[in-house]
Amino acid sequence: MNKVMSNKAVIALYVLPAFILIVALIYGPILITGYYGLMDWDGIGAKTFVGLDNYMELIKDAKFWQSAYHSFLLAFFSTLSLVPYLAISLILAGKVKGSDLLRKIYLIPMLLSSVAIAQLWVKIYDPNNGMLNSLLTMVGVENPPAWLADTNLVLYAIFVAILWQYAGFYIIIYYAALKGIPESLVEAAKIDGASPIQIAYKIKVPLISGVIKVTVVLAIVGSLKYFDLIYVMTGGGPNGASEVIASYMYKKAFDTFDFGYGSAIAFFLLLITLIVTWITRKLTASEDEIQY
């Protein structure tokens, strides 16, 4: 057994193609970006080496920390949102009539590109003609808020859109995981008289805990580097109220020709993500992954 499964040649054959790809196309570029972060460079002219100046500036940059705070908030809410997504998946994966159709419908928004989703939510949040405010006015709310213009609301308004955008992604992962649970285990519990909720909570959830941990990491990492909808819907505004790290980085690197600084933000973002992920892994670590 051990001999077959320890064949170095096979391991190399299986791991190397993927490994070479990510080293060449992900590690290479991000290290070069780290190097650019040590430069004063507009992306066009000559580079000047400035050492850690960009990072020093970054540490004092209030706008950066504001956007970092927003990114962390997004990570927090994304992680929280996993609970309802897991609940929906438990229901759908249970023997509910029509669950097959419902599941397919639930995943539809995931197919839409960000361009479409951004347009939809801009229409929902439009302060005067928008769907949400039309509904609010109809039920008698006077002066409904101008969602994307209100610096206190805009961040949360966009969070709703982002969480909705990713619902399908997590539901499909949970669903597949739940479908992988051997029927025999659930049947056994039923015979013992466990209620569906008990089965879900005591048997199904622990069995897919490995997958749940993975989704927690995905939610946090995905949130910290999130960019799409925010850039299209508000451009980080008004007044920086919805700026996140990635949109701030993009602005610096591509819009204001401060490529060196933008690269420093990018590299710093990677470091932050690494640390947060490491902490998350420590916090969620258990004795070992569940195995049969």
């Binding site: 990510i22 570029p29 980085m249 690197a253 591509f254």
Partner: peptide, 23 residues
């Protein structure tokens, strides 16, 4: 190696695009 793959998850596209282009 698994850790190295996981770190790959954390790189935003925009911070890699210019080096990738030269590559």
């Amino acid at each position: 190696v698994l850790g190295l793959f996981m770190v790959g998850l954390m790189v935003p596209i925009h911070s890699a695009i210019i080096p990738l282009f030269s590559f």
